[in-house]
């Protein structure tokens, strides 16, 4: 028996159309859902606590800058440094430390203008990571040259920190303020380099007769953001000294 129909409640096209719409809707819903691992496990498993979602705002950067300036001042006024400084170097170190303290007031004003809270402590994580170890090495080594080497490293680090923060800052006017503060540390870094390796002969990167790199006043055309390296402390059994790496603050060392 042949049956001819001109309309069917569920045609092939209607079914395809409905299926397409269903697949699309499912995909949209799946994209909106959160991915949760569904790995089978035996026994008890501790529940994880999601970390607070912290944003890197302009105020966070300013607070972190305060922590870095405080750390720089603390390092330059530490007895391990002042006790070893030569008669010529001592007033320069004191002037640089005073500059860092004066920058705190500049930063406090910038933070207050953005309804933020000032931060008056050192950067705890970075002080533990390389600040205190560097001071300990200077104290143990008792090498006068370490004082200028540490000062040069600290000033280079602070300059690099401000330069890096420009790339994270939202407000253009604040970027300029940060560059001004960084420029001051750059100048101090150049002066420190000249105190170590003076004259026009100290401008360009060079090595000594043993192939050891000398401190250069102008190590590159553009400001570097790589870790600042400084050899400090006593000479060990192999004839070398400990190298301290100083990095600019990152997400885990910002002051939120």
């Amino acid at each position: 028996m042949k049956q001819t129909s001109t309309s069917s409640p569920i045609s092939r096209r209607t079914m395809l159309r409905s299926s397409g719409a269903l697949v699309a809707t499912s995909a949209v819903l799946a994209a909106c859902s959160s991915a949760k691992p569904s790995v089978a496990r035996i026994g008890e498993s501790p529940t994880t606590v999601k970390l607070e979602d912290l944003a890197v705002t302009d105020v966070v950067l300013l607070r972190t800058a305060m922590s870095m300036e405080t750390m720089a001042a603390a390092m330059l006024t530490d007895s391990a440094v002042t006790g070893l400084a030569s008669k010529d170097a001592a007033p320069v170190i004191a002037a640089f430390a005073a500059d860092h303290i004066s920058h705190l007031e500049d930063l406090r004003v910038l933070i207050a203008a953005r309804n933020g809270s000032a931060y008056s402590e050192t950067n705890t994580k970075l002080m533990q990571a390389y600040g205190q170890p560097a001071l300990d090495l200077v104290a143990n080594g008792k090498v006068e040259a370490d004082v200028l080497a540490l000062m040069h490293a600290v000033e280079t680090l602070i300059a690099a920190t401000y330069q890096y923060f420009v790339s994270l800052t939202v407000e253009p006017a604040l970027r300029a303020d940060l560059v001004r503060l960084g420029g001051r540390s750059s100048r101090r870094s150049a002066v420190s380099a000249q105190l170590i390796n003076g004259g026009t002969g100290g401008f360009a990167p060079a090595n000594d007769k043993d192939g050891v790199p000398l401190v250069a006043t102008l190590p590159g055309a553009f400001g570097s953001l790589s870790a600042v390296q400084v050899a400090l402390g006593p000479v060990n059994d192999t004839g070398t000294r400990a190298t301290v790496l100083m990095d600019t603050p990152s997400l885990n060392s910002l002051i939120y």
Partner: peptide, 18 residues
């Protein structure tokens, strides 16, 4: 551009002091 200029100013400040 701001990042590029910042990396220039950092070194030009060194030029000036030296």
């Amino acid at each position: 551009a701001a990042t590029l200029l910042a990396s220039i100013v950092t070194v030009e400040a060194r030029h000036a002091a030296a």
